[in-house]
Each structure stands twice: as C-alpha cells, then as structure tokens.
Design a protein around this nucleic acid. Sequence first.
DNA 1: AATGAATGAGCGTTCATTCAT
DNA 2: TATGAATGAACGCTCATTCAT
Lengths: 215, 215, 215, 215
Amino acid sequence: MRHLNLSPEVKNPKSSKGLDTRRTILEAALEIFIEHGYGDFSLEKVAANCGLSRGNVCYYYPTKNDMLHALLQSVVQGYLDEFDEVVLDQGLSAEDKFLKIVEMIMSDLGTEETSKFFPELWALSNRNKMAMKEMNLLYQRAREHLNGLLAEINPDLTPKEVELIGLFISASMEGQTPFVGNGKEFQGEIVPLTRIAAFSFLTLAKTITTKDIDA
Amino acid sequence: MRHLNLSPEVKNPKSSKGLDTRRTILEAALEIFIEHGYGDFSLEKVAANCGLSRGNVCYYYPTKNDMLHALLQSVVQGYLDEFDEVVLDQGLSAEDKFLKIVEMIMSDLGTEETSKFFPELWALSNRNKMAMKEMNLLYQRAREHLNGLLAEINPDLTPKEVELIGLFISASMEGQTPFVGNGKEFQGEIVPLTRIAAFSFLTLAKTITTKDIDA
Amino acid sequence: MRHLNLSPEVKNPKSSKGLDTRRTILEAALEIFIEHGYGDFSLEKVAANCGLSRGNVCYYYPTKNDMLHALLQSVVQGYLDEFDEVVLDQGLSAEDKFLKIVEMIMSDLGTEETSKFFPELWALSNRNKMAMKEMNLLYQRAREHLNGLLAEINPDLTPKEVELIGLFISASMEGQTPFVGNGKEFQGEIVPLTRIAAFSFLTLAKTITTKDIDA
Amino acid sequence: MRHLNLSPEVKNPKSSKGLDTRRTILEAALEIFIEHGYGDFSLEKVAANCGLSRGNVCYYYPTKNDMLHALLQSVVQGYLDEFDEVVLDQGLSAEDKFLKIVEMIMSDLGTEETSKFFPELWALSNRNKMAMKEMNLLYQRAREHLNGLLAEINPDLTPKEVELIGLFISASMEGQTPFVGNGKEFQGEIVPLTRIAAFSFLTLAKTITTKDIDA
DNA sequence: AATGAATGAGCGTTCATTCAT
DNA sequence: TATGAATGAACGCTCATTCAT
C-alpha cells in the first residue's frame, strides 16, 4: 500500500494549515482502520491517535461516513497513481508489463496493511454504497490496465471476453489475500504462489478460446 | 450456503428445549451477521430478531464471542457436510469431480448469503483468533478435497506443489466473491466466469511443471 | 474466624441431605463474601463456587438477603461458641481471663478472613437492618463477657460505667482491623500492638473513676 | 466531615465551567456513596442525583474508578486541611492539642456522613489498591500529628514506640465508628465515650514504658 | 481553526428472581 | 430436592453527533 493521496478529497484547499490537519487525520484514520477494522473504528480513536480533539476532527469530517469517504478516496487514489507509473514504463513487451503488474499486486497483498485493509473494504462494500463505489473505481481502473495488455497478448479475444478474463485474473489475485502474507496460514509462500499465478494467467490468456467460455 | 449444523457446538444436548432455543438464536444470529455485518452485529439485534429476551440469549451465549464461535462453527460444519457428499459421489472421474467442486463453489459464492458472509469472515479473521481458526478449518478441508483430485489429474506434481496449486485455485475462486453475484458489479456473469475458471484451473493442473514454480 | 455454625438458621432440619447442601452453600458464600466483598457478592458466584445450579441455590435461599442472613447468623454463632469456651475456662483470675480475651480478639483480627469480613459487616450494617441486628447481637455478647470481667477488676465502677468502658475497649480492638494484619500497613505489628492494648485497657479499667467520665 | 477539596484532582483547571461540573458531580457522588454505599454506587445514580446526563458524567470521569479516585482524594484533602488548622493553633500545650484532636475526631465520627463513609472506605480498601493508598495517606497524616504530640507528652518513648502507640490510639478512635453516633446502638453516648477515650489515651501515653511493650 | 462540554443511544454483561419440569 | 430456562433491569462504558466559545 502506498501513501495516501488526498487530491480527490480536497480540490480547493483554502489554507495549507487545514490541509495538513486533514492529512494528519486521515493518516491516523488509516492506522486505526487497519489496526482495529471498521467495526472498532471510531472518531474518538482517530482523534486520540493524532492528538487532536474530537471536536476538531468533527470539524473536518462532520460525520463518520464523511471521514470514511475521504479515507477510501485517498487510499484508492494512491493506488491509481501507482498503476499509472507501471503502464508508463516504456520498452517492455505487453507480456512483461502483464507479469510486472501481477508481481506488483501479489507482493502488495502480502503486506500487513493490505491484507488487513482490503478484506475490510470488501465487507464494507456490502453495506455501504459509497464504499462500494470507491471499491469499484479502484478495481475498474486496475482491470483497464490488465485488459489492455490481455488484448495485446491474445488479439483473438473479443472485448467482452477480455473483460471477463481480466475480471477473473484480478479477482483471483485478490482472493489470495486472506490466505497469504502477514500472519496468515501461508505466510512466506508468496514467491512460489506468484510464479504459479503468473504461469496460470499467461497460459489462460494465450490458450483460451471462445468455445471454452460460451456453453 | 447450506443450513446450519449445530453438532460441533452441542455434543451432549441436555434438553431438546434448550437445543431448539440454541438453533433459533443461531439462525437469528446468522441473519443479523449477514444483514448488518459483524460491525453492527449485536446481541440485542439477535434477541430482537428471534423474539427472545436479551437475558435469555446471554444465558445460552454468555459472551458475544461465544455466540460468534457457535455461529461460525455451525456454518463451517454445514459446508463440511456438503463437501463430503460431493466426494462420496462415485462413478465420476477425478477431472469430473474437480469440475463439480469448482461449479459448486462458484455457484455458491454468487448467492447473497455467501457473498456477504465470507468477506465478513475474512475481515474478522484478521482480528479474532477464533475466527481465523474456524476459517482455516473450513478452507483446509476444502483444499484437501481439491488436492486429492489434483494429484490424480497430474501425478507428476509433488505433494508440496499440489498444496500450493490447490491453495491458488481455492483462493482464486474465493476472490471472485466481492465482484460477482448478488448486487455486485458482475452480477449475472457467474456462468461464463465459472467456465473460465474451470478451463483455467484444469489447464494449470495439467500443464504446470516444477520448473514453472521454482525459480 | 472459626467454622460456621448453622444451628440458628436450621432449627428443624427436615433431612440431612438438605442440611449438608445448606452448609455447602454457606461455606461457598462465605468465601465469596470474603474474597469479593458484599458489593460483588452474587448468587451466581456462590453457585459456581460450590458446583450447584443457580436454581438449587435459590431453592434454599429464595432471596439474596435470605442467604446473607443465614451467612451472618452462622458466622456470629461461630464466634459466640468461641466466647463461651473462654469464659468457661476455670482457674483463671478475672484479669487473666480479660487478657486472654484481648489476645484472642487481637490475634483473630489479624487473619485475612477476619480483616476482610468485619469491615464489610460494618459497612453493610449501615444499609441493612438485618445485618445491623446480627452485628449487634455479636458485639453485645462479646461485651457481656468483657463487662463481667471489668466489674470484677474494678468493683467501684457503676454498671453504666462498665458498659461504656466495655464498649470503648471492644470498639478499640475492632478499630485495629483496618490497619493491622494481612496485607495492611502494619502487617506484622500485632504482637506489640496487643501488648499496648492489654496495658492500656487494664490501666484504664483499674484507674478510671466516675469523675473522669462525667463532666 | 468537611467540604470536599478538589485541589488534588484538578491541578490545571482548563475552564471554570468544567471545574464547576466536576464539583457538582463529586458532591452528588459523595451523597450516593454515603446513602447507598459503594456496593450500590453507580454512575447512573450519580448522574441522576446531579441532573446531568450519564454521558457527561463519563466525559469527566471515564471510568467508575476514576470517579471514586477523585471522590476519595477530595474527601481526604478536606480532612488534611482540617488537621493542619488544629496543629497551627498556637498557645496550646501538647496535652491540650492532643485532647483537642481526640475531641475533634470523636465528635466527627458520630456524624451520619462520617459513620457511613469510613466503614465503606475500610471495606473498599481491601479490594481496591487506590482506595487503600488514599486511606493510608489520610491516616498517616493524622498519625503524624498525634505522634508529634505524643513524643512531647512522653519524651522517654522511642520513635518506634511512638508510632505504635499513635497507631493504637488512632485506630481505637476509628473503631468507635460502627457503634456510636447516628442510628447506632450507642447513639448519644459520644460525650462520655470521648472522656473515657481522652482519659485512656493520656494515661497510656504518660505511663507506658518500654518493658510494657516488648515481651 | 480548534476546543471542551454535553447529550442520548446503544453495547456487552451481570444479576436477582421466577417458574416448569 | 434439584435443574435448566427465561425475564427484565441495571451497570460500566463507548460512541456519533451537536454546540457554544
């Protein structure tokens, strides 16, 4: 997980002091969200974690959902920044770029932060429309990159097929999260698992045909 | 998701009245857990949902974690029962059994219950050791079945390789949960996605070799 | 503190089984009373402490106050038994009997049981008439013995004076409880303190005159 | 019992409004503590007794023990203030000062407030370390004053002997509490009892020698 | 921009008591 | 005689939110 990017939240910063405080609050909020989960995420804990008064926290984020919104937005934006960098990397073949993304995602989901943040996000998205919107925004953009590369790797695939295969691949990687990495049963197996994933996804992309998908 | 199986919780039922009440409570608890998530899961809501007094609910489950434990145990046991049935199904080849399990899991995770229950479980397992234990129990047993079939499908794989591939496949399927099924972005795409998964997993199982996994 | 004597509670024991159960309950109750104080004294803890069901405990002692009553009665009766033994001890002078009682009381109040039981009783007697009655019964009987000896030691004292001096002496000894003995600031000073008390009380008894008391 | 002194609790009052509220809460708390005892002392009763919301009470005293601590501290401080005044009274002989303290303490323990507060404190000190610390602080300071006067009255006593005699005298006075004063068996006998106490303590102080204490 | 004060609701838990069996 | 089941109230505590300053 990268650093927070507050840009989607604050479009017209009125003062740099306020913006600093917003960043302070969101960083504290992310820590609490990751450490305690959303179920035990409270404005009080956030305020205590950044040394501000509860009143002041509520001044910037009048409701709990407002704060959650800003938090999710800035985390998502941090990832979007990261995606763009990879794709901009010239001189790599589509296949190499694809493998680089797979490696990037697989190694990220083994970190403690990510392995705690995303399951919370998935659970949250089932109860909270705003959370679902932010989550979809993130994964849509992630799949856009994957899909572009998949179409290059296997030009025979229709756009719809590319979309489904991209979804399958993206979701498959996310699905490793609860099982590998920090504190999990398969802590330490990320490297071979990444190789299996890379082999599996590339084979899939290169060999699947329309008749394998349609009944 | 199948019905609850309370057997792991109640080994020596003292009276049928009490056992009925336990079942009533757990069914109400599962509803609340699915509808509100663990974050808004409260003994009061459970009691209200089954028309019992909060005192009586606490008589059966003295702490919230006791109730959660019983709930997770009975859900997990329900799945374990289902697994056993599939494997007992004689007259199918290893490949057919494998495909049947993939279809079973993929179609289950599209239901509303499952698509809400499991993300909560994954999130919970990061904060609650008991939840992690129950979760691991469920997935270990699920992978045992998959692994046995993988070893039959590709006898060249070592046990360790089988284990990693089984994990990858199982986790890949789980990973579809936040994206397909009830209310999700790809609601309605379970069928083609299941075919992609089946193709991908079988191809992987049949074609991967040791050199693809080890660096 | 001596063992419990249930005789004042149970005058017509219907069956020896029931009487055993009563004793079991009261012994458990005394332990809880001493360990947790009356504030955290609950029928549930008592039941758990003697392995009986809450229902059965309530069968014998329908209300919490009933159980408290039985408990206080049997503790008080245990002390009364002890007092009688000392006084029956023939062949001692009044002064020696007096000193023996002082020593007995002073050494008792250093025990953990006593140093925890009596402050609870004093506090309780301020809110609970039954507790006050039992407490008064105990101390009245204790003073009766002291007063008889005081009248022998100083025959010039009027009965009223004897009563007041006996009260003063008895209360003075009780007053050491919160300060000496198990876990207290002056743990370990009971012996010299007993000698000071003995000297002080005997000197008082022998030298005080009417004009020292009346204005 | 004197008025509460909040000074040990609030060193840097942030606002006079908050300080007023703290005093209001503690006064209500003392009333409840005295009227109901610590066993039935609840934040809800305190809040109701001073017309504040439970939430606000918890804002000032986040835990029950925090409130108890503040309450005991301010009561103890009230007594310490009183002690200092007596000792500052010039122009009195040591013996007269001693008698004045005895009279002060004996008349105080006959009041309803005191006769209910202290037994609760003694009982509490057996379960609660903070309560024991506050209690010891109070009595240590009380004995310091007594001990200074005792050493003047009988210069032959060693410091250790003075300490033990001071303890004995102080504890003896406290011990009268459950028996005299408001609502007790010897309500109304405080005056003669005070004279007996004064006579007894002075005689003790003047006549006791080392051989009476050491075996 | 920031703080402290205040509220009211909800939570997990404990408990005394009652009752059917 | 004994048990398990059930209730309803209370408790300590946390929290999201509002508001005056």
